[in-house]
């Protein structure tokens, strides 16, 4: 079924603008399925960017998406919170289900994006204070009580391991932080919106090794409560932190398996060539 896209992303036929919202914050059992993707194809105009991708993503696991640049791994990630709606000429067919519901037809767009948070390659703080950055998501959700906001901000900053270094400068501009701090602040901002999934698009590629280490540790901690899907070009990173790994090549999902199995005994020769560094 074709999907017409708009700049904002309210696609009438799929999301049904006025549909009553049911974000369904039911407790999800670990091991249950957060995302079920069946026979998904994605086109940018005439370009067939993702070909017949099927994948199940389990709750409270870290799934790493690897592959050479241009293989479609970021495009795939963007589809999960419907960020591709913002791209003109983008068309998706097939079935993507979040907690059992079709993300285009059965889940409200804003609710989906609230539940599926995103961390970008470059740190993207707003030109606001540290406090206001973190409080942005909760405010959108109708939380305006000062004490409640302060509580959420503190909790989120603690979870993202930046409370100690930022608690004395909450009212200063977030733009004054270092790159690594900004990235952890962005993770805190995402956590404050209380998502159940966090999408990370090469979150450490712009950071130094020490900051990278901190983010990786953080991801391992967050896994207890969140489902994490991370795009990375760093094979070692995928090996270190992920439970499952998916290898993309030229828009196709070549292999998807337990990380340990993928890195020790890949079943597809192309996967082996890639992770041993013969191309890419």
């Amino acid at each position: 079924m074709a999907l017409t896209t708009t700049t904002y992303g309210y696609t009438k036929e799929r999301s049904g603008e006025a549909r009553p919202v049911s974000p369904d914050i039911a407790a999800v059992e670990p091991g249950s399925l957060t995302f079920e993707i069946n026979h998904m194809d994605l086109f940018y105009g005439d370009h067939h960017a993702l070909k017949d991708v099927s994948m199940d993503i389990r709750t409270h696991e870290i799934t790493a998406l690897i592959g050479p640049s241009g293989c479609g791994k970021s495009t795939f990630l963007k589809s999960l919170n419907r960020r591709n709606d913002l791209v003109e000429n983008c068309r998706i067919t097939g079935d993507i289900r979040f907690e059992g519901k079709d993300i285009f037809r059965e889940v409200d767009l804003l609710a989906l994006r609230t539940r599926v948070g995103m961390v970008f390659q470059q740190p993207t703080p707003f030109p606001k204070s540290i406090f206001e950055n973190v409080a942005y998501g909760p405010r959108l959700q109708g939380i305006s009580h000062k004490g409640e906001l302060a509580g959420i901000v503190e909790q989120s900053l603690r979870q993202a391991a930046c409370w100690d270094e930022m608690k004395d400068r909450l009212n200063q501009s977030a733009l004054g932080l270092s790159g690594g701090q900004q990235q952890r602040l962005c993770i805190a901002r995402t956590l404050a919106a209380r998502p159940s999934v966090i999408l990370m698009d090469e979150p450490t590629s712009a950071l130094d090794p020490i900051s990278t280490q901190k983010i990786e540790d953080l991801a391992l901690e967050l896994k207890e409560k969140y489902t994490i899907i991370i795009v990375t070009h760093n094979m070692q990173q995928a090996k270190r932190i992920s439970d499952k790994t998916a290898f993309f090549l030229l828009g196709e999902l070549i292999e998807f398996d337990d990380t340990v199995k993928m890195f020790t005994d890949p079943s597809n020769p192309k996967t082996e060539e890639y992770i041993t560094g013969r191309f890419g």
Partner: peptide, 16 residues
């Protein structure tokens, strides 16, 4: 303004 302002705001569930 950088595009990232828009993307992160949408990413947090904000409307246009």
């Amino acid at each position: 303004l950088p595009e990232s302002y828009r993307l992160s705001s949408y990413g947090l569930g904000a409307s246009q």
